[in-house]
Design a protein around this nucleic acid. Structure first.
Length: 456
RNA sequence: GAGGAUGUAGCUCAGUUGGUUAGAGCGUCAGUUUGUGGCACUGAAGGCCGGGGGUUCGAGACCCCUCAUUCUCCCCA
């Protein structure tokens, strides 16, 4: 058979893994630095845990796992009936009762709800694991990809937002990725919705304006009309999205637009708090940008919302997050507020590769290769090999007794800087030849002093 | 879910208005060189031209179907 990969999945070679680990390690270090503790959850969850949490679209994108044992004779009749229902578009427990995780937030909420009694609140966890979505793959979109999340539950304090914003700032600064960190507040959008006829309009308003930078005002306007918004309301939304300038200017403008509404005032106050806390003297030079068109699709967000966009490159968002007042309510633990952020590592990788941001020092591999030039020769080499390893020198031996040509090429292609040659001559005199592949220089030394040779 | 592009050697790709036995570069293997790689030269192996059907005297090329990859929209990280 011809081997292939499932659509949207990838193998990772050594170089790629080293680079990915560089990103993972950077993020994890910052998470730990801010006092977050690691958590891992299973690749699969009960399907009930995930269904209905990501909107209609999300349900379609869940990878569902077929139950085992459907072919057992005593189950076949039931299985056929259940499958009929599946064909009608329903999920039936008899056919599938598990699904692959779609994000890290809902499994975390499930975990918090299950362990509510044991956790020490405010509870801060980070999680670095793959998620799966049955989306159609394209640039920057995969069916299996990693998310790195940090969340805090059990605290209403905006200090948590301050922390998370600074985590974003620190990670992208360390990795040298130029980003725009955009923030907004759902309460401001709620106030706008209220002015447009009620809070239940929020989706009709946010979905179109979220697309503004992509499709332009005319199309946004058309979509608003389709969704039943009318003259004065559309004018208001136009005024809203037309707000421009630095953060201070934007705050002034939004105040005069929706400042009459209580929830809007709250949202503005929160936004102002975050910007002042992070950069008290120079609000306009803040690394964070107010973006009133930022809405975010997930409807469980209730306060601050954040999204990170890489500059100088065409790529969807590489991170996002926000505050949710009642995530665990879905699992019968009400009134537990939380706030979290997520890093999209695979997109960050693509951005860094495109902008050539990976340091060369990541090519960390074997330092020494012992040639294999015969039975007795390789045995002598093997003893020295183990000696070097015990001195923490990354070393290997060529396991085939091949021509020099081959062994040299192996060293070259694997970027191994040194080869050590022990042939019959060296065997007799208890010496070995150390050759630097790059410079071509070589020297013969006694085997007993090899351990103190400095490879660099 | 909607639309576009591309499938030819291990890899990257040529292949003219349809015309003999399908090519190049890189890589692989062998040799020049049995204890010294990179460079050079010589030679070799390697192809159901994604799959199926059709048009034609004749299809890698044209038409239809199908599969795969990729990009855009929707949505998202």
């Amino acid at each position: 058979m011809k081997p292939t990969l499932p659509q949207g999945t990838r193998d990772f070679n050594a170089v790629t893994i080293r680079r990915r680990n560089y990103i993972f390690d950077t993020i994890k270090n910052v998470f730990e630095l801010y006092g977050f503790q690691p958590l891992e959850t299973p690749a699969m969850e009960n399907i009930d845990t995930l269904m209905g949490k990501y909107g209609e679209e999300g349900d379609k994108l869940l990878f569902k796992i077929l139950n085992n044992g459907l072919d057992r004779p005593e189950k076949q009749e039931q299985a056929k009936q259940d499958f009929e229902k599946v064909l009608g578009g329903k999920n039936v427990e008899g056919i599938t009762e598990r699904a692959l995780r779609y994000d890290l937030t809902i499994p975390f909420a499930r975990y918090v709800a299950m362990n509510y009694g044991q956790l020490n609140f405010p509870f801060k966890r980070y999680q670095v694991q793959p998620v799966w979505r049955a989306d159609r793959p394209q640039k920057g979109r995969y069916r299996e990809f990693y998310q790195c999340d940090a969340d805090v539950v059990g605290s209403n304090s905006l200090l948590n937002e301050v922390e998370l914003l600074n985590i974003y700032k620190d990670v992208f600064k360390t990795l040298n990725i130029d980003v725009e960190i955009k923030i907004n507040n759902r309460k401001i959008l709620s106030a706008l919705a209220e002015l447009c006829g009620g809070n239940e309009r929020i989706t009709d308003i946010t979905v179109p304006i979220d697309k503004l930078d992509k499709i332009g005002w005319d199309k946004v306007k058309a979509e608003l009309e389709d969704r039943g918004l009318q003259g004065l309301q559309i004018k208001l939304i136009e005024d809203y999205i037309s707000i421009e300038g630095d953060n201070t200017t934007k705050l002034d403008a939004i105040r005069s637009l929706i400042g009459e509404i209580e929830i809007g005032r709250q949202g503005i106050k929160e936004l102002e708090y975050l910007l002042n806390y992070n950069s008290p003297s120079t609000i306009h030079h803040s690394p964070f940008t107010i973006d009133f068109t930022l809405a975010r699709g997930l409807n469980y967000y209730t306060g601050t919302i954040i999204e990170v966009k890489a500059l100088n490159v065409r790529m969807g968002s590489i991170g996002g997050g926000g505050r949710y007042d009642d995530l665990t309510g879905l699992f019968n633990v009400p009134d537990l507020p939380g706030v979290g952020i997520s890093f999209g590592v695979d997109r960050m990788y693509d951005v860094m590769e495109e902008l050539k941001l990976f340091p060369d020092s990541l090519k960390n591999n074997t330092e020494v290769l012992f040639f294999n030039l015969g039975e007795a020769e390789s045995k002598a080499a093997y003893n020295l090999l183990q000696l070097l390893r015990s001195n923490n020198v990354k070393a290997e031996i060529y396991t085939e007794q091949s021509k020099f040509d081959k062994q040299f090429k192996y060293a070259e292609r694997n970027n191994i800087p040194y080869v050590i040659i022990i042939g019959s001559k060296e065997l007799e005199t208890n010496t070995c030849v150390i050759k630097n592949i790059q410079s071509g220089k070589q020297e013969t030394i006694a085997q007993e002093v090899l351990a103190s040779f400095s490879f660099q």
